[in-house]
């Protein structure tokens, strides 16, 4: 409760820029970040694999239950 009271009394300043050297990509907004095609391609490929692996894993677990659970 003390912390809550402390937060309530904090000045509501707006965000200030970082005072120390920021990482390179800190200077740009998300849509401007260099993001080559291979990253997007990898994301799509991995996503498809994720779906396949989950369907197979959950399917196997369901089969296990149906086969052995009385």
């Amino acid at each position: 409760m003390t912390a809550l009271a402390g937060c309530l009394t904090l000045p509501r300043t707006v965000q200030e820029p970082l005072a120390f050297p920021a990482p390179e990509s800190h200077d740009v907004m998300p849509e401007e970040i260099p993001n080559d095609g291979s990253d997007n391609s990898r994301f799509r490929t991995t996503l498809i694999r994720v779906i396949i692996v989950q369907v197979v894993a959950l399917g196997l677990l369901l089969l296990l239950q149906l086969r052995y659970q009385p």
Binding site: I33, D36, D39, R42, F43, V53, Q54, A57
Partner: peptide
């Protein structure tokens, strides 16, 4: 990069259920 960050999260999505099983 953002793309690599997204792919890294999908790795958990990929392996978590089989590993926990």
């Amino acid at each position: 990069s953002v793309g690599q960050a997204k792919s890294s999260l999908l790795m958990s999505a990929y392996w978590k259920i089989p590993l926990q099983a």
